[in-house]
Amino acid sequence: MPPARPERAAYRAGPKLENNRTAPTTGSHMTAFIQYTLQGLALGGFYALAALGLAVIFGVLGVVNFSHGACYMLGAVGAAVLLDATGLGFWWALPLMTIAMFLFGVLMERLLVQWLLRLDPLYNFLLTFGLTLLLVDVVKRKYGVSGLPYPLPAGLDGRITLGAVSLSTYQVFAAVFSISVCLAVWLVLTKTRVGMIVRASTEDAERSRALGINVSRWVTPVFGFGIALAGLAGVLRAPTGSVTADMGSFFIIILFAVVVIGGLGSILGAVVAGFLVGLVEAYGQGYAGRFSQVFIFMLMALVILVRPSGLFGREEAAS
């Protein structure tokens, strides 16, 4: 049996194998590039969706929600359990799990997170970290570690082919869906009063309070909303990835990289960086194989060096 998944250091060990004796075939580098780009965008939409929730929670509450990965996992596992227990498939799971995770988020905020909001943000980081361990363990105990089956929704199991470029229908659907959700969230944020308040509170909650906005009233729904987005991302992932208790443990690291690149607490930053990271990963896979993830963290390091507050973080932050 191979080493455990989290032993990332292991892949530096051992002799290097000669790699890629044959380059991608018959000339068509352009086709490959387009293919990678589309795959990157599809992946990016998905990262953007999950990172959006993380960014909003961070902005409004100042909480670095470590449990975002676990909530993503709960969304996927919940969808699989729902299917197994009631036969309700993907199209039901999308709304039902999103609502369920919203409620879960509300409970989490009311029962736990709110008590630590006044303290150093480290406390809530540790709280959500502990909660992650707990949730992962509970799921392991209940559903084992090998994961749960989850099929592709009927009608989305085909391929969409345009010339030499070909993508799975589900991948296209997931990308379009994620982008639509991001857009919808964007519209709510930019065109409504609630959105304006959330944006203002995300940027500076204290100042918003001093301007007469009852930020506390928005804290719970915003937290629930962020968690709901994580759950939704999890449901979207279920048909195309492994549904296991551990599925969020690595995902959360990528998400942190996304929000750091985008600029913490920047909603637009999370979305843009989500796509950026998706593209970097896809090009990395296409052109640099094993190092595809390394590029994500190199990008993060570069952003931290050049713009410590992130691509869309406010420059004034540097004072």
Partner: peptide, 26 residues
């Protein structure tokens, strides 16, 4: 014959691009 040996990071969640590559040599 083994025409392509494609290394991926570990762990890894997204294989779409690796699969495209693996298939490119038919």
């Amino acid at each position: 014959t083994v025409q392509q040996k494609i290394a991926t990071p570990f762990p890894n969640e997204n294989f779409a691009t690796f699969i495209t590559k693996a298939g490119s040599s038919k």
